[in-house]
Design a protein around this nucleic acid. Structure first.
Length: 638
RNA sequence: GCCGGGAUAGCACAGUGGUAGUGCAGCUGAUUCGUAAUCAGCAGGUCGAGGGUUCGAAUCCCUUUCCCGGCUCCA
């Protein structure tokens, strides 16, 4: 351990020089260190302090408060879970058990799936193991020995895993008699797993491949403190509370019916009003941004899809063709071929470019029944699609434009944080290397020009071109993919799309596909959860409710409501014989942004009282000042 | 598609072999009230669908449809 510096909470310790090894270990224990991080980010067990690899001269204590430390805790928790499962169900075979972004899981091969009661029994067994404070002991052995060991234990999956490992030596961890193959690192001992909870069970294929056996997965989570665990569980409750399927029903926004078909959405009046507002905004802004709007059919002859390549590359998501007068027609999974047909309906000059076509195009795609999910994964949806035909020298400017436009639109819907990804050329691709290079650089430059932080996903582009994906973060900080901007070298080629260049020769434009919201259905689902159903005034299906204290004010209130409706405010009235508290409660449950309460006072004075959804009260001396207030808020879309 | 769980009144749910229930919503009546639930009465069901076991099935068995959680973040 000579010559090694150990940083603990900002203090440097040098075992052998002023500090004894015991002191350092004690100190590490005192701060609840669970691992050590080297400069290059590599993480070691605390026990490896005495045997650090050559070249490592300085390490820093890692606690469960850091992301790495927490991941280690969770990983160790998954081992403890496997230990508990083996104790309770000795015939269970262990497989893999990693930590995840918000917890951990472990997959087991068991004869009968786990029940919720099993889960709490396992959790209790885990608590006992944690209490015993068994040290995690790392061992290494040769591959051959490890294979022998796990064979003798009957752990066939572990044998399979070891056989696939390339190194000569593998590491094992033992804790309280439970041995598992593991790369590590782990917490020093089981008591260093402060707060954990098992959450749910699920089927999961071995190695995620549906050709393999189905294993039983147990999900759990762990945190540095009970407090944080509690917060996380509350967060999960909040997620449930905001579930768009639940709110969709409660607020009468949309429905899905068995007898109509899975993954097919019916927009109810409230949802349809929101969609109409979104669409109006979308169309208006697109026209202002120089897009031309299109409407195209829902079906087309099968040859079109052969030519576009969809039948080759996309047929798994397409429905069986229908026969019309002896010709096969396909319901459309994409809008692009139609937009190309519009482009090709005329000769185009280089002076015409860029040509930007936009359409709210409804497409139908086959999704496996198991993946359908409310509005977020459906079989019929409307894309806010657009195709930009431009010259290759225009790509950067166009992308820049699209980026600006996208961020403007997303911000209007209350999304302020984005994660941006640039996906580059995959192994299988079409188009020339030159074009890929130019297009990828154009995307990159546009991102840098906008000062957007982005991650590069090498090789993750589509076969026909590089792309930028933008993921929004909602009010619960969850990430959703909405926008995508994709360069396409393929379709112009396939459809022989051309323009007349300045040198009088035929040239091929580049196509940019882009969607800002992705699909209206999905975006709506995300919005419902983002706003927890409490839509801002400009989007709210009903903007104001007019409520009376008693029957006496009904006529007067009716006039007020009519005056609002006449200028386009969406109003609902409640003149029933319930008490005002009841009416306000009803209005609040419907998440109507404002309630106007009218009693004798208002009737006599002409003043108006406006109650916000959150209980706050505002008063206005007359109708016009109230109207002005509402109109300004609508105008500003906040 | 696969594994597990589920489907009972418009909604949320209870009901493990013996008369199908509760709350909210709905309807009717009373009440006319000042910022998140006034009171009373009434009505509402092929217990997802089909078949079977049984004297008797929401309940047990089989089939089927749909919904929910998941199905690599790689020792």
């Amino acid at each position: 351990m000579e010559g090694i510096v150990v940083n603990i909470e900002g203090e440097a310790f040098e075992p052998g020089k002023g500090h004894s090894t015991e002191d350092v270990l004690k100190r590490l224990k005192k701060v609840n260190a669970i691992a050590l991080r080297a400069h290059d980010g590599y993480i070691f067990d605390i026990s490896s302090l005495s045997g650090l690899p050559e070249g490592v001269h300085e390490v820093t204590a890692v606690t469960a408060n850091s992301p790495e430390g927490l991941a280690i805790c969770r990983h160790s928790a998954s081992h403890v879970m496997a230990h508990a499962v083996k104790d309770l169900y000795p015939s269970a075979k262990v497989t893999i058990g990693p930590s995840t972004v918000d917890g951990f899981y472990y997959d087991f091969d068991v004869a009968t799936p786990f029940t919720p009661e099993d889960l709490s029994a396992i959790e209790k067994a885990m608590q006992k193991i944690v209490k015993r404070n068994n040290p995690f002991v790392r061992k290494t052995m040769s591959k051959a020995d490890a294979i022998e060991l796990f064979k003798s234990m009957g752990e066939a999956y572990k044998v399979e895993i070891i056989e696939a490992i390339e190194a000569d030596e593998v590491s094992l961890y033992e804790e309280g008699g439970f041995i598992d193959l593991c790369r590590g690192p782990h917490v020093p001992s089981t008591a260093a797993i402060p707060a954990f909870k098992l959450l749910k069970t699920a089927g999961a294929y071995w190695r995620g491949d549906e050709k393999n056996k189905m294993l039983q997965r147990i999900y759990g989570t762990a945190f540095a403190t009970q407090e944080e665990l509690k917060h996380h569980l509350e967060f999960l409750e909040e997620v449930k509370r905001r579930d768009h399927r639940r709110l969709g029903k409660e607020l009468d926004l949309f429905s899905i019916h068995d007898d109509i078909g899975s993954g097919l959405i019916l927009w109810h009046p409230n949802g349809a009003m929101i969609r109409k507002t979104i669409e109006d905004f979308w169309r208006d802004r697109h026209i202002k941004a120089g897009y031309k709007l299109l409407f195209t059919p829902h079906i087309a002859k099968i040859d079109l899809w052969k030519k576009s390549g969809h039948l080759d590359f996309y047929h798994e998501n397409m429905y069986t063709p229908m026969d019309i007068d002896g010709a096969d027609y396909e319901i459309k999974p994409m809008n692009c071929p139609f937009h190309i047909a519009v482009y090709k309906s005329n000769l185009r000059s280089y002076r015409d470019l860029p040509i930007k076509y936009a359409e709210l195009g409804t497409v139908y795609r086959y999704e496996r029944s198991g993946v359908l999910h409310g509005l977020l994964r459906v079989r019929g949806f409307t894309q806010d699609d657009a195709h930009i035909f431009c010259r290759i020298d225009q790509i950067e400017a166009e992308i820049l434009d699209v980026l600006d436009f996208t961020l403007y639109v997303l911000r209007t819907f209350g999304f302020e944080n984005f994660d941006v990804y640039l996906s580059t050329r995959p192994e299988k691709y079409v188009g020339s290397l030159d074009n890929w290079e130019i297009a990828t650089e154009a995307l990159r430059k546009a991102l840098e020009n906008k000062g957007l932080k982005y991650e590069t996903d090498p090789g993750e582009g589509v076969f026909y071109g590089p792309k930028i994906d933008i993921k929004v973060k909602d009010s619960l900080n969850r990430q959703w993919q909405c926008s995508t901007i994709q360069v396409d070298f393929n379709l112009p080629e396939r459809f022989d799309v051309t323009y007349r260049a300045s040198d009088d020769k035929e040239a091929m434009p580049i196509m940019i596909h882009r969607a800002l919201m992705g699909s209206l259905e999905r975006f709506f689902g995300i919005l419902i959860e983002h706003y927890a159903g409490a839509f801002p005034l400009w989007l709210a299906p009903v903007q104001v409710s007019v409520l009376t204290i008693s029957e006496r004010q009904a006529d007067y209130a009716k006039q007020t409501a009519n005056s609002l409706a006449t200028v386009g405010i969406r109003v609902e009235t409640d003149f029933g014989d319930e008490k005002i508290g009841y009416k306000i409660r009803q209005s609040s449950l419907k998440k109507i942004p404002y309630a106007i309460v009218i009693g004798d006072k208002e009737m006599d004075s002409g003043a108006l009282a406006l109650r916000k959804r959150n209980g706050e009260n505002l008063s206005f001396s007359d109708f016009n000042s109230l109207l002005g207030f509402l109109q300004e808020e609508i105008e500003q879309r906040r």
